[in-house]
Simulated scan of single mutants.
Amino acid sequence: MNRRALLFAGLAVAAAAGAPARAVPAEIRVILIGGPDCPPCVRWKREYLAAWIASPEFRQVAWEEVEAARFREAYQERYWPGDLAPILAQIPRKSGAPRFLIVQAGRIVSNHLGVSKWASTLDDLRKLLG
């Protein structure tokens, strides 16, 4: 390989490494709100978390959990630091868990409460991912 080819190959690799692998993850976040003392939250994690992490959708979003020591405290501001604070402000009813939020460009676009609503959350997410 000559020097020019080597230089261009190196630049291509560097450009690929610096470019985002996908445009969606920075823009779409999925947030679980719950706590370890919340039986439905524990059930969701036991029944759905592993499949969620293994899913293709998981790799296309930013996943976050807001988990307080007691799930009744999960909506307190101290558990929503930094860029999560504006999301907390958008939640109309600040109670109940597990709650699944989908946030796109800083706005809540899907808000479902309860284990039985996980399927609805996934449906909403798949529509967003197109």
Rank of each mutant, 00 (worst) to 15 (best):
Asn2Ile: 09
Gly10Tyr: 03
Val13Arg: 15
Ala15Cys: 14
Ala16Arg: 07
Ala16Gly: 10
Gly18Thr: 05
Ala19Met: 03
Pro20Ala: 08
Ala21Met: 06
Arg22His: 07
Ala23Lys: 04
Val24Phe: 03
Pro25Leu: 03
Ile31Pro: 05
Ile31Gln: 02
Ile31Val: 05
Leu32Thr: 02
Gly34Gln: 02
Asp37Ser: 04
Asp37Ala: 02
Pro40Arg: 00
Trp44Gly: 00
Glu47Phe: 03
Tyr48Glu: 12
Tyr48Gly: 14
Ala54Asn: 10
Pro56Cys: 04
Glu57Phe: 15
Phe58Val: 00
Phe58Arg: 11
Arg59Leu: 10
Ala62Tyr: 03
Glu67Pro: 06
Phe71Gln: 03
Arg72Tyr: 14
Arg72Thr: 15
Arg72Cys: 07
Ala74Glu: 08
Ala74Ile: 06
Tyr75Ser: 07
Glu77Pro: 10
Glu77Gly: 11
Glu77Phe: 15
Arg78Glu: 13
Arg78Phe: 13
Tyr79Ala: 10
Trp80Met: 10
Pro81Val: 10
Gly82Tyr: 15
Asp83Val: 15
Ala85His: 08
Ala89Ile: 09
Gln90Ala: 12
Pro92Phe: 12
Ser95Phe: 15
Ser95Thr: 09
Gly96Ile: 11
Gly96Asn: 07
Pro98Tyr: 00
Arg99Val: 10
Leu101His: 07
Ile102Cys: 05
Ala105Asn: 10
Ile108Lys: 00
Ile108Glu: 00
Ser110Gln: 13
His112Phe: 13
Leu113Phe: 15
Val115Asp: 13
Asp124Tyr: 01
Leu125Glu: 01
Arg126Ala: 08
Arg126Thr: 08
Arg126His: 06
Leu129Asp: 00
Leu129Arg: 02
Leu129His: 02
